[in-house]
């Protein structure tokens, strides 16, 4: 369930910041009638939209450190950084989604995820909180979303007044599909 990192490292950032989320992965998985799975999610913001990743996909959340820029790669790849001895590429989700770039500030975080035996970091505006979303709260994405090539959107969850977009980390950050994700983007996306 935790593909690469020992649980003790979970969500403990190299800078000392940490968020407690023990036994998160052991939460019972509830499956709703339309196939969406419930569970625990980590919310983050890009521009004025909240997105969530499934917690079991996340290795840790860190405060961005110095980056080395890498040439000859798309602009949404900010560069590579040192994560406790592993050289990890950092993808700026704003740029990936075709949103306007925003300089890093005190809220900026790097969400480190594991995709297909690789580790990579995603720069987001801020991390909001860990939340439990029941399966019935998640509405599968309409077919038009999937057929439009945005299969990386797993569904939508309404929490309070706000609509959260549930992202499928695997299809979002699959190295082979990144370019397509970038082309589709989120800019013309009207939910």
């Amino acid at each position: 369930m935790w593909p690469r990192s020992p649980t003790t490292y979970l969500l403990a950032s190299s800078t000392g910041e940490s968020t407690t989320m023990d036994a998160a992965g052991l939460a019972p998985v509830v499956v709703s009638a339309d196939g969406a799975r419930g569970g625990q999610f980590v919310g983050f913001r890009l521009a004025d939209q909240t997105y969530v990743f499934r917690i079991e996909r996340i290795q840790e959340i860190v405060i961005p450190t110095a980056l080395a820029r890498v040439p000859d790669v798309p602009a949404y790849i900010e560069g590579v950084t040192n994560l406790r001895g592993t050289i990890v590429p950092i993808i700026n989700l704003r740029l990936l989604f075709g949103l306007e770039a925003k300089p890093a500030d005190a809220e900026t975080r790097t969400v480190v995820v594991n995709v297909a035996a690789r580790t990579l970091g995603c720069t987001v505006d801020s991390v909001t909180r860990v939340m439990r979303i029941a399966a019935e709260q998640i509405h599968a994405a309409p077919d038009t979303v999937a057929t439009s090539g945005r299969s990386f959107i797993e569904g939508f969850a309404r929490i309070g007044d706000e609509l959260h977009i549930v992202l499928d980390v695997e299809s979002l950050l699959d190295p082979a599909k990144l370019e397509m994700v970038h082309r589709m983007g989120m800019t013309q996306f009207d939910g």
């Binding site: 890498v70 950084t81 590429p89 690789r118 990579l120």
Partner: peptide
């Protein structure tokens, strides 16, 4: 030297990356 493509992709003209004494990465 750490290969770039272990976590990332091969970039023509780069032989890999390395972590320097101050923890930063150089190509």
């Amino acid at each position: 030297v750490k290969p770039l493509d272990e976590q990332f992709a091969h970039v023509r003209g780069l032989g890999g990356a390395s972590i320097l004494g101050d923890g930063s990465v150089c190509l």
